[in-house]
Amino acid sequence: MFEAQLVEGKTFKAIIEAIKDLVVDCNLDCSEEEVAIQSMDSAHVSLVAVRLSASAFSNYRCDRPNSLGINTANMSKILKMLGKDDSITFKAEDESPDSLTMLFEGGKSTIADFELKLMDIETEQLGIPDTPYQCTIQMRADEFQRIVRDLQVLGDTCTISCGKEGVRFSVTGAIGNGNILVRSSDEDKDKVTINMEEPVELNFALRYLNFFTKATPLAENVVISMSPDVPVVVEYPIEEFGHVKFYLAPKIEE
């Protein structure tokens, strides 16, 4: 039996909204410790990794590990009916369940229940090495969203370079070019923290960075981690309960 109640149901809704443009079908991997999602986009350019620890839920029971295969667009349709202060209770049988039951409860008088059909999804789980990164940038999530949205009008590739003076986001395109420099700042309102061992410069597809910023409502700050010649990690922490992490393979000079 899998049964778990998330008091702030809107957190789960925000997770599905954040990933549904990148991931069509995915497994909710439920275990005693957590509910997790790991999936590549269809082009295998990026990877989404979601974690919600059991402690994020007010009641959590998972008798044995289970993978619940969902279509994110269909899940999103059901979550449209979630009230903004509703809790969600998830229920599924142990042995290859056909459906996932979700109860939406808000005020005392209304309980809505929905059943989402599940499917078998064959996925390759990728092992992500837990290695330290050369540069880690923490900045406001809405500021990062604004930067990648603004730069997309100039071109499709963004160079992110982290150096002594700060983090530079640069785009070169047909109509011209642009640079946005973000420097370390202690100001409470828009604090920027940059930890750098060695300068790093990598190129990324703005289209994907824009997809990632769909997770902005989940977190006040985003953490961007880079090392030479490896995928960037764009992490949206979910309080102390988990995260949505996006990994994006860099573009390489031919």
Binding site: H44, L47, G127, A249, E253
Partner: peptide, 14 residues
């Protein structure tokens, strides 16, 4: 020109 790398080229299948 730049070529888009693949994420599966960086992380091995478990």
């Amino acid at each position: 020109d730049m070529k888009q790398g693949s994420i599966s080229g960086f992380f091995a299948v478990k």
